[in-house]
Design a protein around this nucleic acid. Structure first.
Length: 139
DNA sequence: GCCAACGTTGGC
DNA sequence: GCCAACGTTGGC
């Protein structure tokens, strides 16, 4: 079973990496997604997949990594029953957050949806880009 | 705080 | 099923 990689966006005002950290090993629900493309991505996630945690608006940077601990299930907060949630748990905070600005500068990362589709809140990250980003955070 | 981009809704 | 109007997101 091959792992997939993703990126999850959150406004730190609403849900931040520190709150995620406090939720600990039990994890927290990732709900409230009301966009079909994002929902499609949520449904494709498998237990054990890893996701970058991105702070939008304030910070505009990748700040940490979380892991999927529960695959897509109906989002209880959605009355229409069309959208799903997943459950994620905190893995780590990056030593050095990766600024959107720096991702934009990197030619190898210019294909990422993060840059092309600024409004998408759940998106796949190919394994090559995942590696590049991980290496960047260690500098 | 503004505005561009884009997704969704509803009237026809 | 089209498309205008509207709402939301997120970068600047």
């Amino acid at each position: 079973m091959k792992k997939s990689y993703w990126l999850l966006k959150s406004e730190p005002d609403v849900w931040s990496i520190d709150q995620q950290k406090k939720a600990g090993v039990k994890g927290a629900e990732w709900d409230g997604v009301r966009n079909y493309q994002a929902a499609k991505n949520l449904k494709a996630m498998k237990k054990g997949d890893q996701c970058f945690f991105y702070h939008s608006n304030i910070g505009k940077e990748i700040v940490g990594v979380v892991e999927i601990i529960k695959e897509a299930y109906l989002d209880k907060s959605d009355k229409t029953g069309r959208f799903v949630s997943v459950k994620v748990r905190f893995l780590k905070k990056l030593k050095k957050p990766i600024k959107l600005e720096d991702i934009k500068k990197n030619k190898e990362l210019s294909h990422l949806s993060l840059i092309k589709q600024s409004r998408l809140s759940v998106m796949p990250i190919d394994s090559k880009s995942w590696k590049i980003l991980n290496n960047t955070s260690k500098i």
